[in-house]
Write a protein that binds this DNA or RNA. Structure first.
Lengths: 230, 230
DNA sequence: GTACGATTTGATGTATACATATTGTGCACA
DNA sequence: TGTGCACAATATGTATACATCAAATCGTAC
């Protein structure tokens, strides 16, 4: 899996954390990453620190980097916090979007739709994440953006099962989610912040059902330990 | 001003940014900081990247670190976003605080009160910041915390004049702010989230008057340039 | 005199060697 | 056998030399 550049390492680690290829609480060894990505430890450390700043990792002094853990406490906070942030972001996006961002949003949705149709779970995770991050950019509020980013990290990780539907009901929900993305695009395009806000709540309710399905049966998967941040 | 440790550099830079000793948009030279703080460039870069993650700085690829800029756009967002985040944090703090944090909160308030009484503006900025950061810790919500942190950075920077009262009305407001901190402590102690929330709005309204005073007469001071983040 | 481009200068980015801290292992001893 | 201390192994933290990139300066052509 040898990559060449720092940017690729950054993107790769983000993706691997979002898709749970790297599990919550897992420790990341600088030397190993150096070898795998053909970089010296210095840029690797840079990347790890950047990802810590974005909420993907925690760094413990003298003890290295760990994939951000997911505790029950975090889950409760997630379910409490997400609706208000998501709806605020959606409304602001409808107000403030710029044409170039709209193109990017449509592009992300195209990729997402294809992933849904071909059943590519990993691609669904990353393109869905990108879709909502772009909405965050559209909202253009530097104070809400970091919260949104952290919510999206955990949303992606909790929602793994959402993208691997096991029955028709789940397949239906996935199709609905895809449709809602299109509706988001419409509402934002029309600068209709009220509709965008309402859509955010609907979108949230939809995914919440699946999230809770994931959380209840097998909570052990998501909690390893919780190393202290520096 | 030679310091010895990385931690001191981190704290020192935070303080200097909050107190506007380092102005928005100002570029930070790694070599100069290395010399001033008697550290090699490696740990300096670590610190700069951490501060970028916290929102104090922006880092431009191959062009170095800049103190986070303050644009008119940012100000508008600030005034829109702060009330809801502050009030949410206050309510959550009243719900979730732990004894140790309460001690820390009281300690910060003691320092703040002393600073107000002695007219030590710089100490007011940092201890007020610490007070509200501790409330953020009490709230114990990892998703809201980064937003709070960014709001507090700009709140401190915009509010410089608040701590250097030029007339009796301003002195009175400062005394009121100090009193409100005590009321925060009471409400939180009593787990009274509704009162804490209301206090947050009051506290906001109070400082908003002064913030706007600062913003209107001399807006040029606060905007230099806006380097692109990497 | 102006505009463009090459060169120089000074910064940031990277690699590597070394220092230091943490953790695990093994042995001594109760 | 269990506990605790010492030591070794391994990881992270730091320093420094070198590579690379950006911007400013100087020169030349028009």
């Amino acid at each position: 899996m040898n990559k060449t550049s720092k940017e690729e390492l950054l993107i790769s680690l983000r993706r691997r954390i979002l898709t749970m290829d790297l599990e919550p609480g897992q420790s990341l060894d600088e030397a190993t990453i150096s070898r795998d990505y053909a970089l010296s430890r210095t840029p690797v450390r840079d990347v790890l620190r950047q990802l810590a700043g974005e909420g993907y990792l925690t760094i413990a002094e003298n003890r290295g980097a760990f994939v951000a853990s997911m505790s029950y406490k975090a889950l409760r906070d997630f379910f409490r916090t997400a609706p208000s942030i998501y709806s605020s972001i959606a409304a602001l996006a409808a107000e403030n979007w710029k044409p170039q961002q709209m193109d990017a949003l449509r592009a992300a949705q195209t990729v997402f739709r294809t992933a849904v149709e071909t059943g590519n779970a990993e691609e669904m995770v990353t393109s869905n994440n990108r879709f909502h991050l772009i909405m965050g950019e559209m909202a253009d509020n530097q104070y809400l953006e970091p919260s949104l980013q952290r919510l999206l990290i955990d949303h992606a990780r909790i929602g793994q099962t959402f993208y691997r539907p096991k029955d028709d009901a789940m397949r239906e929900r996935l199709a609905t989610a895809c449709l809602q993305h299109d509706q988001f695009i419409e509402a934002i395009q029309a600068h209709d912040d009220q509709t965008a806000k309402k859509l955010a709540f609907d979108h949230w309710e939809l995914s919440r059902d699946n999230l809770e399905l994931f959380v209840r049966p097998d909570p052990l998967e998501m909690d390893l330990q919780l190393p202290e941040a520096s």
